[in-house]
Each structure stands twice: as structure tokens, then as C-alpha cells.
Design a protein around this nucleic acid. Structure first.
Lengths: 208, 208, 208, 208
DNA sequence: TATGAATGAGTCTTCATTCAT
DNA sequence: GATGAATGAAGACTCATTCAT
């Protein structure tokens, strides 16, 4: 009766494979028609299996959204992790790092736009997901704030910037762009926006 | 079929008042529980009227969303109109104008956060509303691009900026901030973010 | 509260005129879209008046159907009355009378097919109307039985016919034809069917 | 969309049984209270099941009417098929065949009067069913016309009959009788009418 | 483990009817 | 007399969820 995510089988068995498949199918359907317009039957149909299979692996519809979002988030974070480097010592390194990060994210989202579509939708479902969204935003902003702070210390960032507020504004940029272009992303135009953003931000915070 | 938006009464009569009331109630419900979670009965209950009254004034649920969104948009545009000024001749004027615009919008959204909540939701309903959203974004971006172009001509904006891409990035900022803070907006922190954004952008595009 | 068909005004006043108009409009709508698919609003729209006017003149939707049917029936009976003649003395006179009757009815129905459409529908509404329909049928059959009986006495109808059963069968013919051709009646083909029927019946009952 | 008449099970499984039961229940309800007065809930209540079960097996209310009508038609045609014989060579054989046919149909309808009630109703639902009704009528009439034509060739039918028109008139007879007596059929009186009809028609077309 | 039959709560929508003006 | 605003009962239909097999 209680299904806490793992049925009887252990996490590495075949069951986990099925779970992945379901999440994949759900991601596809949610992204294509939206969470509210997607029924369990839609997901099952894409899997080519009966719809009650779903309930062996997930509590309910809401439950799987949670998992799908986490899944998508994990993939995004993996992209971010690839790009992280050591400490940033100059505005050129900052610019360089930002561009690599931005372009890499862009590539990821262009490759699988469903992730982007999903994230935008998730906030309309309930407060808990909104909280989750906010947490991610705040983590991103905090990380950026750290960088800016060390930039101030290192002297390549203006000391008079409002660190937290500026970090928020910067993190907001890819988010807003995703809202506008996320549904049918084209790499080239988006890459141009990334470069423009990097330019804007670098000059905006640079100490002179 | 029989109700094309306006019943028999003319636009200035009492009927129009009821329409406004319904729109107001729908805005409240949509913002509070989300479009998909709101039923016609919810709206009617808030009005204290029978649910069929709704259908005298609006075609269906989708129809009223359209109207509510237009309503909200109109209010937002009214705010923007108040701030618009003549030509901008220097980076200081640019900074000044941006700040007035941002703070004014912030005030509007803080006063009635439901507008912001609604706009974010609307895109999850159907493609038509997504298009509408994109159109608004593009209009904002185009207006800003015009300003930047004239700034280049006037010499206070660097001539090497990618005008369109930069305009998009800048418009994305308030959008992203709204996604993060729109649901429970607090004027002061948001105002700080506006100022930080203005600072970032002004320095980012300024010719030196 | 009780509306027994006549409001306060007397039957010859203007009120009666409005009643006729409503009945006419209802007949048109019922015939065009069917009783169940017709709403009071449809009728009012055709009249170009408010829908509550209806309730000044008729109890409810069911009530007006009753009236419309009676109206249609009265028109049909008027047609029949025109054709009735004195006693029928020979098979030629029988044939002649039948043909005049049949063609006259055909002409009436072709002129206003709505009557025919209505009568066919009425039976699907409730038992009372079915009873009414049966009564009409029986009256027709009884009248025809009288004629046949006098024909037997006069010697031009075979004495071995089952009078009642045969009368029923004969009355059934126009009814069945109406079911098939009543909705879009064309005079010529229907006239041919009338003539064929008269021929069939006359020869069928004729004494030799 | 997902239910095209047959769910996943194949036609021979238990599912087909349930379908039959639903059709039977719908036939009963439609006949008893009329198509328009019958709700899906009525049908489900008769089945003793939830109303949504219905939608697993049929698209919608209109859909099941179609099926019920086809079901009824099939039973009727089965009756007709039993009676069909080889070529008819004389007026006596014609009379004989007609009587067997008529009595057989009468027996069928008396046994399950709901079929008759249903067929009469179906035409009030929509144009498509009216077309279907007309097609049946025309098929019957065409078959009868063939018989009459071969009767003319064989010499036992008067050569001066208007074949098509007469066939229509004859087919109209059972139809009209059904309209009058179909709702509460009694075998004996109906059999008398069949015999009278056969008598009338045989003498009416017989060559002398 | 997997299936699909069954259910009932919930949603949108229509429409006959009433009532204040 | 006439209007149209308002209502509530009722109906079609969907879908998440459960359960027996």
C-alpha cells in the first residue's frame, strides 16, 4: 500500500530500469502536452504497457512529477558540474567561465528541450514544487554570489556591487530567456544571447 | 453560440459591472489555486452566485482566462505608459528611466501580486497563450532595442553590443525575477534587485 | 402562477395573436431541429422577443408542443374536411374520393412539411402524445371502416373483407409514406405513390 | 480517442459479453423512456454498475444508439432471412410468402416490442439515423419491386402497376401499423391486420 | 510482476423556469 | 405586458486510483 519509491526489488535490479523508463516517458508526455493535460494513460500508452504498472512504481501522478523534475534537475546539474573549474582570478577568467557555462547549458537544453519545458510547468502545480524551484534558484544565486565576492576580494569586481541582488539578477537572465525561447530552442540564436549576456554581465561588474 | 462575450446589454450598463466582478473573482482564484485547479464553481462561490451566471458572461473557462490575462496586461501596460518619457540623451537618463520603470512595475506587482502569478501560469494552458506571451516579450525587447540603438547613435552606448540579443537578455531579467519572487513579492528586496539590475545593465552597455 | 393557456385578455384580443405567433415559431423550430434539440431560447430568437414572453402564454415547453400538435392537426383536418363529400355509391366514386383526399393531403404536406415532421416527432416525447396520436389514427380508421361497411352494403366492396383490419392497413399507408418521405417532400413522386396506393386499395377491396 | 468501440480485449472474450449486456440495457431503457429521456446513468443503474463503465465500451451516448439500432436491425433481418424462399411463381405463392413474412415479423416484434419502439425513435435523433432509416426502407421497397417485376413477367401481376410506387406503398403498410401498434403489440389483432394486408395487396396487384 | 476492469468523485456545460423591474 | 438577469437541477464525460486475477 505504501510505495515509497522502491518496491520490493533493490535499486539496482530490473525494477529500477522500469522506473527510469516510466520517468522518461512521463518527461516526454509532460513536456509535450503539459502536466495537467497528461493522463496516466498517456504515459502508459507511450510505454506500451498497462496503466496500472505505473502505480507499482509511483504513488500517484503528483509523485512522478516530483521524480521527473528531480531527474531533469540532476541532468542539468551534471552539465553544470562538468564546467566548474578552480578559482577564478581575473575578469577574463570570469568571462570565460560564464561563457562555457552558458553555452554548455544551452547545448543541453537544445538537445532535450523537454527539460526546459518541464521546469517551467512544474511551478504551476503546487506550492511544494514552487519551493523546490525557489531553492534551485537560490542555490544558483548563492554560488554566483560567492564568485562575485571572491571577485571583489581579488579586485576584478567592483566593490560597490550589491552582491546578492546582482547575483539574483544575473541568474534571472537564463531563466527569463528560457521562458521565451525554451519551448522551441535553436542553438545559434540562443548562443548569441548567451554571449551578449556574458558581455553585459562582465562589463557590468568589472572593476575599472 | 448565443453568448459572444457580451450579452444583450451594452457595455456601459450594469452587465459590464458584473463582467468586471467575475474577472476580478477569476483573477483571484486563478492566482490563488492555479488555472487548472480552479473550477467554475470556485469562481462562482467567490462571487456568491450560482455557477451558471458565469456562462451568461463568458463562453467557457478558457474564454475568461483570455479576458483575465488581457485585463492584467492592460494594467501592466498602463503602468509602463505612465513612465515613458521623451528621448533619452545620456547614460544617466537611461539609468534614470530604467530605474523609474523598474520600480514602478515592482510597485504594481507588489500591490497586486495576483497579476504576476497569473501571467506566469497562463503559458501552461495552451499554445495560443504561449504565443501571446512571446509577443509581449518581443514587444518589450523591440522597444528596448530601439532605445539601445538610439543610444549607440547618441554615443552613450557601446557600438559593439549585439543590440537584439542584449535587449532580449535585459528583458529576461525582470521576467526571471518575477518567476522567483513574483508569488510573494516584498517591495524592499525587489527594489534592491531592480537597482542592482539597473546598475548592472547601465554599466554593461555604457560606452567609455 | 397558474397559466391555463389564456392570460387575462380574452381569446380574440391581441394576446391571441401573440399566441399564434409563438405557436408558429415553435412549429418552425420543432420541425427544423426536433423537439428535444429545440430550446425556449431558439423559439424566442425566431420571434425576436425575450424568452420569458413565452411563459406568459404557455405553461412550459411540453405545453406548447401539445398546442403546436393540435394546431397542426387542425390544419390537417381542415384539409380533410374540404374533400369530404356525400355518400359513395360505386367503386369509381370510392377511387375518386380516395384520390382527391390523398392528393389534397399530399399538397398540404408538401406546402408545409413542418407539420409532417412534427407529427412524427411528437410520439417520442411522452405517453400522452402517443395516446393522442393513436386516437387520430383510430378516428381515421373508423371513418374509413364506415365507408367500407357502406361499400359492402352497396355491393361494390367485397363482403369478405375484414373491415377493421383492412381500414387500419389502409390508414397505415400514408403514415408509412410520410415517415419515409415526409422530411423533404416532393409533390410529384408523392402524387405517384398516392395514385399507386389508390389503385392498390381500390382493386384490393373491389367486389367482382 | 482511446476507445474505438472495442477496448483491448478481443471480440470473443468476456468484454464482448459486457458489451452485449450494455446494449441490452440500453435497448431496454431507450424503449422504455425514449432516447432523449434516457441518461447514461439510467443505463448504468439498470446494469447495476457505475456509469463510467459505459465509457469503457462505447464512445458516447450517440454511439451506443447506433449499436443498439444495428443490433435490433440485425435481429429483424435474421427473421426476414428465415422466411426468404426461392422464386415466386404464382399469386398464391406470393400471398403465401407475404403472409409468412408478415406473421413472422409480427411474432418477432410481439416477442420483443422494444425493437419496434426503438426503431421508431431513432429517426428523431439526427440526420444520419434518418438516412439509415431511409436506406432500410428503400432496400425493402427495392426487394419488393423486384418481386413485383418478376410477377409481371410471370404474368400473375397486372402489367400496368407502377412498380416502384406500389412497392413503396406496400412497404409503408407495416411501417404505419408499427407506428400505431408497435408500442404495446398484441399478436392476435396484429396477425389479423397482417392477413388483411396480404389480402388487400394480393388482390390489388393480381392480374385477372 | 503486470494487467485491465471497475469505480466515483469531480468538471464543464446546458436549459427550463422564476422573479424583480 | 415584456424583459433579461439569475438559478439550480441535471447530464455528458474524464480520469486518478483500486483491486482481483
Amino acid at each position: 500500500m505504501q510505495c515509497d519509491g522502491n518496491p520490493t526489488f533493490d535499486d539496482t535490479g530490473e525494477g529500477e530500469l522500469v522506473r527510469e523508463e516510466i520517468i522518461e516517458a512521463a518527461l516526454a508526455e509532460f513536456a509535450e502536452r503539459g502536466y495537467h493535460q497528461t493522463s496516466i494513460t498517456h504515459i502508459a500508452a507511450r510505454l506500451g504497457s498497462g496503466h496500472s504498472l505505473f502505480y507499482r512504481y509511483f504513488e500517484n501522478k503528483r509523485d512522478i512529477l516530483q521524480h521527473v523534475v528531480e531527474h531533469a534537475m540532476a541532468r542539468t546539474l551534471a552539465t553544470l558540474a562538468e564546467v566548474s573549474t578552480g578559482p577564478i582570478a581575473s575578469i577574463e577568467e570570469f568571462r570565460d567561465f560564464s561563457e562555457r557555462l552558458g553555452l554548455s547549458l544551452t547545448a543541453t537544453f537544445c538537445e532535450d528541450p523537454r527539460i526546459s519545458q518541464l521546469l517551467l510547468q512544474s511551478a504551476t502545480v503546487d506550492d511544494e514544487l514552487v519551493q523546490q524551484f525557489n531553492t534551485i534558484f537560490d542555490m544558483g544565486s548563492a554560488a554566483l554570489a560567492d564568485i562575485l565576492r571572491s571577485g571583489v576580494e581579488a579586485g576584478y569586481v567592483r566593490p560597490d556591487v550589491d552582491i546578492e541582488a546582482t547575483a539574483d539578477s544575473i541568474v534571472a537572465i537564463p531563466l527569463g530567456l528560457q521562458a521565451r525561447y525554451g519551448l522551441q530552442p535553436d542553438y545559434e540564436p540562443l548562443a548569441a544571447r548567451v554571449r551578449a549576456t556574458v558581455d553585459l554581465v562582465s562589463r557590468g561588474v568589472e572593476a575599472r
